[in-house]
Design a protein around this nucleic acid. Structure first.
Length: 373
DNA sequence: TCAGCGATTTCATCCACAAGTACCT
DNA sequence: GTAGGTACTTGTGGATGAAATCGCT
């Protein structure tokens, strides 16, 4: 199972383009970003080798992996391991333009550590060799621009958010959109929507990988801190009285509302549109939750009431997280369903952004930015 | 604390037309 | 059941303006 290039789907993705929100192999990166002047300006960086979904911001020289901010936090926050927090980390610079692998090596001194197979490298290089790069005449071979990324704060500083900026508990819950159940205890979808958005804004890039979540202790691990803090097991749900601290200590967004009803019957996702297919619904829906609810949860205490309550809360939590993942993907990853139509639209002439009939006057031609009048 | 106002951001809309889909013969 | 023809629907991206939001007084 690899994390393949979003463009060719053949090579392993190495580079993350923020502008395109896409993970690309080196060859496609160079290919795509040599297409025009605008694409050349796209800021790219390595893709996180842990979650394979976010742009890497630091390189851990001890583990020899590139990590995004979230994975850096989770891996080096000193809570998982007292040793990892002392790992040496190096800022990963972004770049633009169309650098060769050699130039990338100059940008990233650790580039020699990258796990590029020789075959892959050669394939990429071969691909690069086939490309014609439109130089900008500055004498810079490929117009590569090195962009400094902000030095990530120390893990502890980053981890320990400035609580002074956090609203009061009640208002915090309101800020986060922690939903007030209606009289039936139902989750109000719009408020969930708001909650997730606000949470992302507050916490920066989201910790969005459920796979990672399960690999690192499962959902139960989310509440370990609460458990320790509270001294007793609480249901992993947050009521209106949920403390802000509990939000802050759970980066994995257990923004959920406890309901006495089965979770899957309460959640309606306003974000689901006509574009969503059946699989989308299933993905957010009850089937997986039913399955989860049958599975023993690690945090459950053996009272029947707790088991039922925790199970409901857990399924709801899981559903919200899955919904959040999907929403994030939907928000940042505009999906082109028909490439041919996109290609057509990309070359169409326009007047003030609107398509015009062929042969008529236009003020914008994507193929040659000239005017017909 | 609230209202008012300008600045900034977000989002829906428009356009032409090839491709996809549904229906009929 | 299959093939061909016709009519209708869908989906693309950039510019734009309306609406929402923000920040300041």
């Amino acid at each position: 199972m690899g994390y393949m290039c979003d463009f060719c789907g053949e090579q392993r993705s190495m580079v993350y383009c923020r502008s395109d929100a896409a993970c690309l192999c080196l060859s496609c990166d160079r290919n795509v970003h040599s297409a025009n002047a605008l694409s050349k300006r796209h800021s790219r960086t390595l893709v996180c080798e842990r979650c394979n979904a976010q742009p890497a911001s630091v390189r851990c020289s001890d583990e020899r992996v590139s990590l995004c901010q979230n994975c850096d936090w989770s891996g080096h926050d000193g809570k998982n391991s007292t040793t990892t927090s002392h790992h040496k980390r190096q800022t990963i610079n972004c770049y633009s333009g169309c650098p060769s692998s050699a130039e990338l090596s100059s940008i990233w001194s650790f580039c020699m550590d990258l796990n590029i197979s020789s075959a892959e490298e050669s394939a990429c290089e071969q691909g690069m060799g086939l490309m014609t790069i439109d130089e900008d005449g500055t004498g810079e071979k490929s117009g590569v621009q090195k962009i400094n990324v902000e030095q990530p704060e120390t893990s502890s500083a980053a981890q320990g958010m400035d609580h002074s900026s956090v609203p009061e508990n009640s208002s915090m819950a309101k800020e986060l959109g922690v939903c007030e159940d209606d009289f039936n205890g139902n989750l109000i979808s719009d408020e969930v929507d708001l909650a997730l958005e606000n949470y992302e804004e507050l916490f920066g890039s989201a910790f969005n990988s459920s796979r990672y979540l399960f690999e690192h202790g499962g959902i139960g691990s989310l509440f370990e801190k609460d458990e320790a803090h509270e001294g007793s097991m609480q249901q992993p749900a947050l009521s209106n009285n949920a403390s802000a601290d509990s939000f802050m200590t759970c980066r994995t967004e257990p923004i959920i509302c406890y309901s006495s009803k089965p979770a899957h019957s309460n959640i309606s996702f306003s974000g689901i549109t006509g574009e969503s297919n059946a699989g989308d619904f299933q993905d957010c829906g009850a089937s997986s939750m039913k399955q989860l609810s049958r599975e023993p949860q690690p945090w459950c205490h053996p009272t029947a009431q707790d088991i039922i309550a925790s199970s409901h809360a857990t399924t709801r939590n899981n559903a919200v997280m899955r919904y959040k993942e999907k929403k994030k993907a939907r928000k940042f990853d505009k999906r082109v369903r028909y490439v041919s139509r996109k290609e057509r639209a990309d070359v169409r002439r326009r007047v003030k952004g609107r398509f015009v009939k062929s042969g008529e006057a236009y003020d914008y031609d994507p193929m040659s930015p000239t005017r017909s009048y």
